[in-house]
């Protein structure tokens, strides 16, 4: 294996890293907010809220992300005059916003189910106990349901973030020059597929290992009551990281 070539490729691919991270970060954030809304909608008892949320989750989990990307980018491109009349064309004109929309909607559908499951997993006794202490709905959500559900959701959410990082590679197909796009271009120029994809793969792997580690750390930090009592006082708080 040609190490000099690999090093050169790695550096060239790093140019796409900011875009990859931006796509992953924003889509997880926007998708997360939307997911929370969807989860609350489907947990409400009102059919007018429950059914749209369920339909959304059904459609976006039942179709491939790549189809959603194409539908939003090329499919909506067909309706430029209408979208211009509505004044939203500037948004759909940009490949970046199209990719971000597709990624966010997609992750929202998956994350909504994770959040819903996490909220449902909160033991009823704890909610009852909270009510018995006279907590209002908001206090209950903030003090009891929120923290417990968050801890419960973390492992699954970690997987979802990892798959979002991986999914950003699909943006390469609609002209966005992130890591996979550059990798494809380099292959077309040098015709050395295996080496280039090893380099690109290692970049994603490193991001994902960092994400997984960070969330494991968060989980550890959030569950002090599940840990065995320390034999001697911990040296410093930094030990948590």
């Amino acid at each position: 294996m040609d190490l000099a070539f690999m090093a050169e490729t790695w550096l060239a691919l790093l140019a796409g890293l900011p875009l990859t991270l931006r796509l992953a970060g924003w889509s997880v954030l926007c998708g997360g907010v939307l997911a929370l809304v969807l989860a609350l909608m489907s947990l409400s008892r009102h059919p007018a809220l429950v059914w749209p949320a369920r339909a959304f989750v059904f459609v976006f989990r039942g179709t491939p992300l790549l189809v959603q990307v194409f539908l939003i980018y090329y499919g909506l491109g067909q309706f430029r005059p209408t979208l211009q009349a509505w004044g939203v064309w500037w948004f759909f004109r940009e490949a970046y916003w199209c990719a971000l929309t597709a990624l966010s909607l997609n992750t929202a559908a998956y994350a909504a189910e994770i959040i819903r499951g996490a909220i449902l997993s909160v033991p009823y006794g704890q909610i009852e106990a909270g009510r018995a202490c006279g907590m209002g709905r908001l206090t209950l959500a903030r003090r009891i349901v929120g923290p417990i559900a968050l801890r419960q959701a973390l492992p699954a959410y970690s997987n979802e973030i990892v798959s979002m990082v991986k999914a950003t590679s699909l943006a390469s197909i609609i002209t966005l020059a992130e890591v996979t796009f550059i990798a494809q271009k380099l292959i077309a120029q040098t015709f050395r597929a295996v080496e280039i994809f090893i380099c690109a793969g290692s970049i994603y792997l490193l991001i994902n290992i960092a994400v997984t580690r960070a969330i494991l750390g968060l989980e550890y930090w959030l569950s002090p009551h599940l840990r065995a009592a320390p034999r001697e006082p911990p040296a410093s708080e930094a030990a948590h990281a």
Partner: peptide
């Protein structure tokens, strides 16, 4: 410069004004 996988795809984007 915006690079596409096929010419048909840049045709579609010319048509949509991207």
């Amino acid at each position: 410069i915006r690079e596409y996988k096929t010419t048909e795809q840049h045709d579609l984007d010319l048509l949509s004004g991207r």
